[in-house]
């Protein structure tokens, strides 16, 4: 069986699955709109959570948050199921496909056979859509891939039951109830307000305050933990900012695209100006990544290089603080 499903590639898997599933159910939605409505833009520093022997830096909220917030704001009901028994998980999936419903799945990346080796880590919060089954093969729409792909029953079972942090446990989900008309205007305003609140949160590891904490730490790291480890940490920052499906500039460009789209929907042309400004901030994030990469490329031990990178991040924090304060006022 094969369900008619329109595969669109996206920068990030979670936004992509949401946008593609909603579009399938007749509510046309772009990736930036899904990202914005779920208040996807974020910054958090998790010094104690060690990922690959470096602290955690994230430019987005916890996996699943974007989807949850979006559904709440749009009055969409999602059915979620988890399983202990792989066979039951497979049967539940098959029966949904049988009744013509494409299903979202949470999977682990390490055993995804179509992923390049370099990207296969034990990361368990990847999302994809299953839109059919042909003999022993499931038809897969993975939003970070250019085109649709396939996984055998065994291959799919392995990734659905990957182990480790946030193990998926066969997690599958699909929308079951929609309002007649999506309350877009209300949701957009609410979502932007929430993003402003997150970015301006009075918490030292969150939002612009989190950036400042990291900036200060970058200055201290070379002396405290040595140049090699510092460079590894900087590499981790750059990877989280640019690599993990952020669409560039730590999601700033996607959010700028959302603001541009939102301007027309809620009839607030000023958001277009905000979009332009955020694009420039995104460019500054790219510059920051370039400067950081110079440090770990040359293995130079010049401490003023680190001070320079740190200052760049402090400037970014100032610019974003100013940006979100004004955005908050504009959306009121």
């Amino acid at each position: 069986m094969k369900i008619e499903f329109n595969h669109r590639q996206s920068a990030h898997c979670e936004n992509g699955v949401i946008a593609n599933l909603l579009t399938h159910h007749g509510f046309s939605m772009s990736e930036p709109m899904a990202f914005g409505l779920g208040s996807g833009l974020f910054y958090v520093y998790l010094p104690f959570l060690k990922v690959n022997f470096a602290p955690g830096f994230s430019y987005r909220p916890m996996p699943g948050f974007i989807f949850k917030r979006l559904c709440k704001r749009l009055n969409i009901t999602i059915k979620r199921e988890k399983f202990k028994n792989p066979l039951k998980a497979q049967k539940a999936l098959d029966s949904k496909l049988q009744s013509g419903i494409p299903v979202g799945l949470q999977v682990g990346v390490f055993n995804l056979v179509y992923f390049p080796d370099e990207y296969r880590f034990h990361f368990n919060a990847h999302n994809l859509v299953v839109y059919g089954k042909e003999k022993d093969n499931y038809l897969i729409s993975d939003p970070v891939m250019e085109s649709v792909t396939k996984l055998s029953t065994k291959e799919l079972e392995i990734v659905r039951f990957a182990k480790g942090a946030v193990a998926p446990k066969g997690h599958m989900y699909y929308p079951i109830k929609f309002p007649k008309k999506l309350p877009l205007e209300k949701a957009i305003k609410k979502a932007i307000k929430a993003t402003c609140r997150d970015m301006l949160a009075p918490v030292p590891i969150v939002g612009v305050k989190g950036m400042r904490t990291v900036a200060k730490a970058i200055k201290k790291w070379p002396k405290k933990i040595g140049v090699k480890k510092t460079n590894h940490y900087l590499g981790q920052i750059v990877r989280m900012q640019e690599e993990i499906g952020t669409g560039g500039g730590g999601f700033r460009y996607i959010y700028a695209a959302f603001l541009q789209e939102a301007a027309a929907i809620i009839d607030k042309p000023i958001l277009k100006e905000f979009s332009k400004e955020l694009t420039k901030i995104g460019d500054q994030w790219r510059d920051f990544a370039i400067d950081a990469s110079r440090l770990y490329k040359n293995r130079s031990s010049e401490f003023d290089g680190y001070t320079k990178v740190s200052n760049k991040l402090l400037t970014l924090a100032d610019n974003e603080e100013d940006f979100f304060k004004r955005l908050k006022k504009a959306i009121k």
């Binding site: 460079n231 590894h232 590499g235 981790q236 990877r239 690599e243 990469s293 770990y296 490329k297």
Partner: peptide, 14 residues
């Protein structure tokens, strides 16, 4: 993008 490919390669080297 070279900047992030380098970051990835460095982490794989580690």
């Amino acid at each position: 993008w070279n900047v992030k490919t380098l970051a990835l390669n460095k982490s794989l080297e580690l």
